[in-house]
């Protein structure tokens, strides 16, 4: 059955991708990209990758569409017709596709226990997670502890992305004088207003649940940060740009990213000061298992803060440019 679901969803995915490439209307492309993200999340879920599916849900369902639409508001709605077909590019793409298809012939079957990916470090992670951390979600253990350096790198990638967007769009924290066009948001529309205000506290609550329940169920800092950012973007859509910036100023968002990244790095340095190696959480508590759990919770919090702040900053940088 799972194969039938997979084939069906992947076919829809391919159709959507082709349609995105083919369409000239950028609004249609944005809508199709939203559909692509939904189908992708369903695919991840069917493959039993709940943490990835939750990330795709948290980022794709809200934030991506909002940011793409903000970008679209700054440009024309239709893509310019490009001139002649570039045959060299077509040839390069075609050859690459053929090589990739040829490469899939050597790929082990889906879920094959003898596949290299299941033979390398994965069995060790599965075996040692209950011993070292005593938490049920192995994904969180791998992400936050076994491969903590990689995640630290990702947090700094998020940080650099935010800095890059702010440089390009000239986001100066709203200090460039008053915004000329008043932005009423959607508060004059009854249904969005009522539903939005009703759901906002639950979105934030759910974000906190995902943040602090990440060791037990799907989720963690990345997903929680994106969900909370979505909640605050909803607030901005309903109440308008200025009202949202009054409750969470742009400086606070940027400070949140810096604080999150510093918290993560700080935990690593604290481990070194206590006599362990960088990001070796076992020294944080007399009991190494509890120490690792404390470390995981602390760095997940750092990740959540960084992601939330970065997404909000990027959203407001686009929105400020619009007005």
């Amino acid at each position: 059955m799972i194969t039938v679901f997979g084939i069906f969803l992947l076919s829809l995915l391919v159709i959507t991708a082709l349609a995105i490439v083919q369409t000239r209307n950028l609004f249609v492309a944005v809508m199709l990209a939203a559909i692509f993200s939904l189908l992708m999340a369903a695919n991840f879920f069917i493959l039993d990758a709940a943490d990835v599916a939750l990330t795709e849900a948290a980022v794709g369902a809200g934030v991506t569409t909002v940011i793409l639409l903000s970008a679209l508001a700054l440009t024309a709605e239709r893509e310019k017709r490009s001139g002649s077909i570039r045959w060299i590019s077509v040839a390069v793409v075609a050859v690459t596709v053929l090589i990739l298809i040829y490469a899939t012939f050597d790929k082990p079957a889906l879920g094959d226990p003898d596949a290299p990916v299941h033979q390398h470090v994965a069995p060790w992670y599965l075996e040692k997670t209950p011993v070292f951390m005593d938490i049920p979600n192995v994904v969180t253990a791998v992400l936050a502890s076994f491969r903590g350096y990689d995640t630290l790198g990702e947090v700094f990638v998020v940080f650099v992305a935010m800095v890059g967007v702010l440089f390009v769009l000239g986001g100066d924290g709203g200090r460039s004088g008053p915004i000329t066009t008043p932005d009423p948001g959607l508060r004059h529309h009854l249904i969005p207003k009522v539903v939005g205000r009703l759901l906002l506290p639950f979105i934030i609550l759910f974000g906190l649940y995902v943040q602090f329940h990440g060791e037990y169920g799907p989720g963690g800092g990345f997903q929680a940060g994106a969900i909370i950012a979505t909640g605050l973007i909803l607030h901005a859509l309903l109440e308008g740009e200025q009202a949202a910036l009054r409750s969470v100023p742009a400086g606070a968002m940027q400070a949140l990213v810096v604080a999150g990244a510093s918290l993560y790095g700080g935990v690593g340095v604290a481990c070194m000061l206590l006599g362990g190696s960088f990001l070796d959480y076992s020294v944080l508590h007399p009991d190494p298992v509890t120490g690792r759990q404390i470390g995981i919770i602390a760095i997940e919090l750092g990740v959540g803060m960084a992601v939330c702040g970065a997404l909000l900053s990027i959203f407001h940088a686009f929105a400020a440019r619009e007005h």
Partner: peptide, 19 residues
């Protein structure tokens, strides 16, 4: 949890379209 996440934040994108 995942279905819950979608149920909560799915309409934000639609609101963005309306705005």
């Amino acid at each position: 949890d995942l279905a819950l996440a979608y149920a909560l934040i799915n309409f934000v994108g639609v609101l963005a379209v309306l705005e």
